[in-house]
Amino acid sequence: MKETLKIFNNSDCFIEGWYWAIPAKELRVGKVKAVNLLGKELAIFRNFEKQVIAVEAYCPHMGAHLAEGKVEGDGIRCFFHNWKFNNQGKCIEFPCLNKSLSVNLQVYPTAEKYGIIWVWTGKGTPKTLPFVPELQTEECEVIVSSSFTQNCHPNVLTINAIDAHHFNTVHNLPVEIDFETEQINQNAIAFNNKTRGGDNSFFVKLIRPFYRNEVTYKICYWYGSTGIVTIGPDFLHFYIMFASRVIEGGKTAGKTILITKKRFGLLGWIFNRIVLWLTGLVGNYFAKGDTRVFQTIKFNLQTPTSADKSIIDYIKHTEAQQAFTWGSWERFTKIKS
């Protein structure tokens, strides 16, 4: 008996981790939003202490959706019978009752970074929130530039960035891409371009003075769903985060986030606007040719080649993660064969 590959590209489960829920700017103080995250209904609100709280959506009294309720103080009150829950999920007020009951909502850890509200979907203490490796300790400016849906699983979407051969066939880049795998931690893996090449190309000759060694192109993946691309000349790197999650039918919903290091003062603000605009152009260039593939692909790597080494490394990485069942958020067990 052995375990078969049942996490990668499997819409019945997802890897334990942090997942994007909603853009932070969409949740003002005192507001609550209904969010379906990986098959589970949540109510996410920002209380009057500016904390972001994510709770199971349905009131444990009669099942009214708490996104219909009202934020009060640090908690939320159900609109149906006015039961109030604090920021720990404990019910602290029971109108029309002369006694208290022991009633609690499930509360899920949240974080706010890169203009996104993230929810931790695992058990126990949350692990590391996704970050841009080069900007781990930097204050950043971001633009949540666009939403996207694709007709394939997030795993299939993310490996596109490390599909070495498609840079020649789809994007017509005159270089032979080769990646070096870097395991950052149990939940994060990176792929670094280590190939020069293309010396006979006018385009490569034009940009070569801006690079000391290889053309900078690095992809870092977190929890099998969030991919961060670092690209650009030595003096200015562009950072694009593609935060994704699997939705019903095994498809992908995601956000494109443009990121740069925060620069201060008026000139810094103007410079960052230009950098973020250029980052958007770079992201659009690479996404333009691939969308067509994602609408019809039925991923099945039957004949791997040497150019697929990075993809195989990534599949092995995802298979080593802890997975949870889509919808119930219970631990997922790999099928034995």
Score class of each variant (00 low, 15 high):
residue 103 V to H: 08
residue 288 K to R: 13
residue 64 A to R: 10
residue 77 R to E: 11
residue 153 H to A: 04
residue 161 A to P: 07
residue 304 P to M: 13
residue 28 R to L: 12
residue 96 C to G: 12
residue 147 S to T: 15
residue 45 F to L: 09
residue 93 E to Y: 01
residue 120 W to K: 15
residue 77 R to M: 07
residue 202 F to Q: 15
residue 110 T to F: 03
residue 85 F to S: 08
residue 332 F to N: 06
residue 236 L to D: 09
residue 189 I to A: 01
residue 316 K to T: 11
residue 183 Q to M: 10
residue 272 N to H: 06
residue 226 T to S: 10
residue 307 A to S: 14
residue 310 S to Y: 00
residue 337 S to G: 12
residue 32 V to G: 06
residue 287 A to L: 08
residue 91 C to E: 05
residue 77 R to P: 08
residue 208 R to V: 10
residue 247 I to Q: 02
residue 63 G to T: 08
residue 37 L to R: 01
residue 121 T to S: 03
residue 158 T to L: 06
residue 3 E to F: 06
residue 213 N to A: 10
residue 302 Q to I: 09
residue 248 E to D: 15
residue 74 D to T: 05
residue 10 N to G: 05
residue 298 K to T: 07
residue 124 G to R: 04
residue 230 T to S: 07
residue 113 K to W: 06
residue 260 T to F: 01
residue 327 G to R: 03
residue 244 S to W: 03
residue 138 E to F: 09
residue 237 H to E: 12
residue 256 T to I: 12
residue 253 A to W: 11
residue 320 A to R: 05
residue 293 V to G: 12
residue 255 K to Q: 13
residue 240 I to E: 05
residue 184 I to N: 04
residue 200 N to E: 15
residue 305 T to C: 14
residue 222 W to V: 02
residue 202 F to E: 15
residue 187 N to A: 04
residue 236 L to E: 13
residue 78 C to R: 04
residue 268 G to V: 02
residue 171 H to K: 03
residue 293 V to P: 13
residue 28 R to M: 14
residue 148 F to C: 08
residue 28 R to S: 14
residue 183 Q to S: 10
residue 326 W to Y: 14
residue 14 F to N: 00
residue 45 F to V: 03
residue 247 I to E: 09
residue 204 V to Q: 06
residue 290 D to M: 02
residue 39 G to H: 00
residue 36 N to M: 09
residue 74 D to H: 10
residue 159 I to F: 05
residue 281 L to Q: 06
residue 328 S to R: 09
residue 66 L to S: 09
residue 45 F to D: 12
residue 333 T to A: 14
residue 198 G to W: 02
residue 155 N to P: 11
residue 124 G to S: 10
residue 15 I to M: 13
residue 310 S to R: 02
residue 337 S to V: 11
residue 151 N to D: 14
residue 152 C to S: 12
residue 58 Y to E: 14
residue 30 G to P: 12
residue 222 W to N: 02
residue 155 N to W: 03
residue 75 G to Y: 02
residue 126 P to E: 07
residue 58 Y to L: 10
residue 143 I to R: 03
residue 26 E to C: 02
residue 227 G to T: 04
residue 180 E to M: 08
residue 231 I to Q: 06
residue 88 Q to E: 15
residue 136 Q to N: 14
residue 258 L to G: 09
residue 42 L to I: 06
residue 122 G to K: 03
residue 251 K to C: 08
residue 277 W to Y: 00
residue 328 S to P: 13
residue 31 K to F: 07
residue 28 R to W: 12
residue 216 T to M: 05
residue 33 K to T: 12
residue 252 T to K: 03
residue 207 I to H: 06
residue 246 V to N: 13
residue 218 K to G: 04
residue 19 Y to N: 07
residue 265 G to N: 11
residue 159 I to H: 04
residue 255 K to E: 14
residue 231 I to N: 11
residue 306 S to P: 15
residue 49 E to T: 13
residue 218 K to F: 01
residue 215 V to W: 08
residue 59 C to I: 03
residue 22 I to K: 01
residue 7 I to T: 11
residue 213 N to E: 11
residue 24 A to H: 09
residue 173 L to N: 09
residue 214 E to S: 12
residue 46 R to K: 09
residue 119 V to S: 01
residue 77 R to G: 14
residue 23 P to M: 03
residue 115 G to A: 01
residue 336 K to F: 08
residue 63 G to W: 00
residue 11 S to A: 07
residue 201 S to W: 02
residue 157 L to H: 08
residue 316 K to Y: 02
